[in-house]
Each structure stands twice: as C-alpha cells, then as structure tokens.
C-alpha cells in the first residue's frame, strides 16, 4: 500500500444555528459527523454527495478555514490543527484548492500575473525576472499563453479562468489539491479540457487530489477511491471499481441509479422517494433509512474492511 498523504480520523464538525423566534436556545447542525478516510500519495480521492452532505465543510476543515469540533486530520503524520507558525505556512502552501466558480474566486482588479504571483511573493519571496518566469511557466503548464499574464481575469472565458485558478493553485508546488466542483460552472465542451488538464498535471506534478463533486460520471473518470456522503455521514467508502460495479449502501445505489445516462437505450434513471434529511435533528441510525431502503448485510461479505464506515452506521 502506498504512503498516505492525508488521514482524516473521525472528523466531526458541528455548527450552532440560532434558534427560531419562538424556540430560544441554539440548535446543532451536524454538518460532518464522524467521517474517516485516507488519501494515498499520488491518487485521487473523491467525495460525492448531494447538497448539505458535508463535503464542502470537510474541505474547509482541511484548508484550516474551520476548526473541527472533534477528530483529527493528519497530513503526512502531522496533526493539521496543531500546526503553527512556519509549519502552518508550509502546510498552506502544500495544500491548495480550486473552487467551483471561476468568476468569484479571482479579484477582478488584479492582472493574471498578480493573481498567480501573489502566493509566490508571500511564500517564496520571489520577485523580478524569476517571478515572471515562474508565472510564464505556470501559464504554459495549464495551457495558456504567457502573454495572458498582462490581462485581467474578466478578459477570459470561464474555462480559461479555471485554468488561471489552477495555475495559481500550482504556484507553490502543492502536494495535495482540493478540487471543489472544478468543472460544474463550465460549459460541457470545456469540461473535458479541464478534466484532461487535471489528469495531466497530476502526473507531471505528482499531485494527490481530493475531488468534491456531485457528478458521478466525472468522479468515475477521475478518481481511484470514492467516499459517498449523506447528511454528514460517510455512508460508503470503496475503490472506484467496487463502488461503480457493486455499490452496497442503499444510498450509493440510489445515487448511482439516479444519474440519467446519455444513452437512449438504457433504462430511465431510477428514483428513490423522499428528500434529503436535515443535518439538524438527523434521523437516528442510518440517516438514509427514512427513505425506505435498507442495507443487505449478507451482501457485504468479505468487503467488510472497506465498508467499515458504512457498517458502523447500521
């Protein structure tokens, strides 16, 4: 087994939501509830789930934008939330993120060169020709012309902007990239360009990816291991092959079956009744059980180890 770059152990993040006008006191939003997974060096780990399942909260905790309520995140054996000073700075350079919206994630008043150079100035004290060369190289690596450096972000299309965002994330030669819905905001014909670029960069830069997506076809294309989340819980953790050929958790099954396939000969997407539960007062036991499907214990068989996360919730 390859080395682990990131280990998330029993991570929990609860938020306090203000009570309503009549009910005083606060309510607990169980955004992430005891989630554990690990990412192997050089691989892509995907988290899938619907809105409110906690996948974005996890990225916030990993980026140290939020403190966990409990649980531990280890990056190469160092506990992420104990890092301070230079160690923390180094960590922030090593873990970078690309977000969904290439329009709001860039300062409209900065030129591309400044957008990409900012982390280099802050972290590596680069300047002058060295800085310009690095930016030029980064632009080339993401498939843009170095002349793009002099332009503003608004002069680019969505796909090109996402390339700039990727160049900015790559500037500090990170080891782990968090890709939060990296192509959801893009046109269909542009998505393939960005996905291909990300696969290429992973090879050339030796990157590990944490991919957050709700698009199961993209997850299948990109990832090695997949975690399926539902209302704050990781309900299934499996290799991509196992999950897509034989999902065990009823929610994983429902999610996979719900995706309409681009082939008119395949049957219509199956539906599961009910709505996604609320992370405030989630249902007891398996949070998916009110939607009427149950896990077949016998089917788990020898895949017990990998489905540990799932089994715990029964």
């Amino acid at each position: 087994m390859a080395d682990l770059i990131l280990e998330v152990d029993n991570l929990t993040k609860h938020y306090r939501a203000a009570g309503s006008f009549f009910a005083s006191g606060t309510r607990l939003v169980r955004a992430v509830d005891g989630v554990s997974f690990a990412i192997e060096e050089g691989s892509t780990f995907a988290l899938v789930g619907e809105s409110g399942c906690g996948k974005t909260t996890i990225t916030k905790v990993l980026l140290r934008l939020e403190e966990p309520t409990s649980g531990v995140v280890r990056f190469r054996d160092k506990v992420v939330h104990d890092l301070t000073g230079p160690d923390l700075r180094a960590y922030k350079g090593t873990v970078q993120a690309v977000f969904q919206d290439p329009y709001s994630s860039m300062n409209p008043r900065m030129r591309v060169i400044d957008i990409i150079a900012e982390p280099l100035k802050v972290h590596e004290n680069l300047g002058g020709a060295a800085l310009r060369n690095r930016v030029g190289q980064l632009l080339k690596d993401v498939g843009l012309s170095p002349t793009a450096a002099a332009l503003y972000a608004h002069q680019f299309s969505g796909g090109q902007r996402q390339r700039i965002a990727i160049a900015r994330a790559l500037a500090l030669r990170p080891k782990l990239m968090i890709l939060d819905e990296p192509v959801s905001g893009l046109d269909v014909s542009i998505r393939a360009q960005i996905l291909n670029l990300l696969v290429e960069l992973q090879k050339n830069y030796g990157l590990s990816y944490l991919l957050i997506s709700h698009d199961l076809a993209i997850v299948e294309h990109m990832s090695h291991t997949v975690g399926v989340m539902y209302v704050g819980k990781l309900v299934e953790l499996a290799s991509k092959e196992a999950l897509y050929s034989d999902p065990l958790h009823p929610y994983s099954k429902a999610l996979l079956a719900a995706v309409p396939q681009p082939d008119p000969d395949l049957p219509m997407a199956a539906t599961v009744a009910g709505e996604v539960a609320s992370p405030i007062n989630p249902p007891p036991g398996c949070r998916f059980h009110p939607r009427g499907h149950h896990l077949d214990r016998a089917a788990i068989g020898d895949r017990k180890a990998i489905y540990d996360a799932c089994i715990r919730e029964l």
């Binding site: 269909v188 542009i190 998505r191 393939a192 360009q193």
Partner: peptide
Amino acid sequence: KALLDSVPVKGKKKKRLYQIDGQP
C-alpha cells in the same frame, strides 16, 4: 459528435476524454 464524446459515461472506460478545443 464531439459533444457526445466529451462527456464521461458511466461504465465506459475512457483514458482521456475527447476534447473540443477552443470555446463556444
């Protein structure tokens, strides 16, 4: 044709997605 080839399809292994270069 290009549009159909550029989307990943469940269960169909594509090493690299067909990409339509340029933009709309």
